[in-house]
């Protein structure tokens, strides 16, 4: 099911995330692999799950294969596709392949640079950028490849993109988002923000774009994780106040504390946006509790 249909029905959309592993996932009749099992645990609580594409530029099982597998286990995948490893032929070909294999949603991303991954000597592709990819994907939906050649069958994909409310200067981020919308983007998923006022300011600026925005929520599991993100993950900042609050409880209570803090944040955030994208990194079991607590705050 396309996410756009949910947004049209004014559904507050909840998504999770599946990170394919470094390894093959041939099932041979066995149970679902762990990374899919984690998503299956929250199957009844989410509308769809993102399937990441060689995340962190580390080589893994392909996002398209993992998306198809995810779908076979009854979850709705959002196939993440990046510009890092594919030229324009490969991107179009993979979008056709995705639709052919039953994928309804794609998230068109630039992709982390090769240099931060585990194959640092590889040749980065970046033949096109995410705005161009969205335009090309919209063209495939309209029955044409990027050179204007007619397709025997058009794709029918809901097109998503990423946005970063932490970006400074924010107006530069907004310019890029405007371009993405003009190119065909139908929904956004954001990077996490831990300051509601910052997100509010961002939402005020993007409201006029008329495209649903899903707030990205990375659950901070420990003060150490916050430090790691601040030091190693560009584009996301965990404020000191957030880290200190977590550091104030015994280690055994981190999960309880993280759940409570996530709920408090999302109570403020939910009324401002059209959905939440959870990146729980192993703690998907807290999502049902979080959702129960914040449901009254979903916008009507």
């Amino acid at each position: 099911m396309k996410l756009t249909e949910l947004f049209q029905k004014k559904t507050f959309v909840i998504t999770g995330e599946v990170g394919p592993v470094k390894g093959c996932s041939r099932l041979n009749g066995g149970p679902p692999p762990d990374y899919i099992q984690e998503a299956l645990n929250i199957k009844d609580h989410v509308h769809a799950v993102n399937v990441t594409d060689n995340q962190g530029a580390a080589m893994r099982l392909g996002a398209l294969a993992a998306s198809v597998l995810t779908k076979q286990f009854g979850l709705e995948p959002i196939f993440q596709i990046t510009c890092r490893d594919r030229n324009r032929l490969a991107i179009q070909s993979d979008l056709l392949a995705a639709c052919t294999l039953g994928i309804d949603n794609v998230l068109c991303l630039t992709g982390d640079h090769i240099k931060i991954g585990d194959h640092k000597s590889a040749k980065p592709v970046f033949d096109i950028d995410s705005v161009q990819m969205l335009k090309i994907a919209a063209g495939l939906n309209a029955g044409q490849d990027m050179m204007g050649n007619q397709l025997s069958q058009a794709t029918n994909l809901a097109l998503g993109a990423a946005a970063n409310p932490n970006f400074e200067p924010l107006d530069l981020q907004i310019i890029k988002m405007e371009k993405k919308v003009a190119a065909g983007c139908e929904f956004f998923q954001t990077q996490p923000v831990y300051e509601p006022r910052k997100f509010e300011m961002f939402m005020k600026k993007v409201e006029r774009l008329g495209v649903p925005v899903m707030f990205g929520m990375v659950v901070i599991k420990s003060p150490g994780m916050a430090t790691f993100i601040n030091e190693n993950v560009t584009g996301i900042t965990v404020p000191e106040a957030w880290t200190n609050q977590m550091a104030g409880v015994p280690k055994a209570d981190y999960k309880k504390k993280a759940t409570a803090m996530t709920i408090e944040l999302l109570k403020e955030i939910a009324p401002m946006c059209q959905g939440i994208h959870f990146m729980p990194f192993g703690w998907s079991d807290i999502i049902p509790e979080v959702l129960d607590a914040i449901r009254p705050y979903f916008p009507q």
Partner: peptide, 10 residues
């Protein structure tokens, strides 16, 4: 990344 339409998220 030789991006032509604006910055990446990083």
């Amino acid at each position: 990344k030789s991006l032509l339409n604006g910055p990446c998220g990083g």
